[in-house]
């Protein structure tokens, strides 16, 4: 039990580093990518990656019933996907 909790803390710390790194990449994306469509796709892919970390690690839905995890992961994929379609179509 003690070991599992230690793993959770390590996972949360790794997740925090990843989330911060992805946020910094996102803000500088327009400076490095000239193409607006690619910037939009890149920024929204980053949203999906960050969302998965929050849902699975911070909210601990990776240990929840499959339906709830699927619902939240669907949200974090569908909303950016709809936004991407609106911007690119």
């Amino acid at each position: 039990m003690q070991n599992n909790k230690a793993i959770n803390m390590a996972a949360a710390t790794k997740s925090w580093f990843l989330l911060i790194t992805l946020s910094v990449i996102a803000i500088y994306l327009p400076a490095f990518v000239d193409n607006r469509s690619l910037t939009i796709i890149g920024a929204l892919v980053i949203v999906v990656l960050k969302g998965q970390q929050i849902v699975d690690i911070f909210m601990e839905l990776n240990n929840a019933p499959k339906l709830w995890r699927t619902l939240f992961l669907s949200y974090i994929i569908l909303v950016p996907l709809i936004i991407t379609i609106i911007y690119l179509v």
Partner: peptide, 21 residues
């Protein structure tokens, strides 16, 4: 804690939508 993470989850969509793209 779940409610607080939701606030974070919303911001990570709001942030690129308003500030980046």
């Amino acid at each position: 804690t779940s409610y607080w993470h939701m606030v974070d989850l919303l911001w990570i969509i709001l942030f690129p939508l308003i500030y980046v793209i």
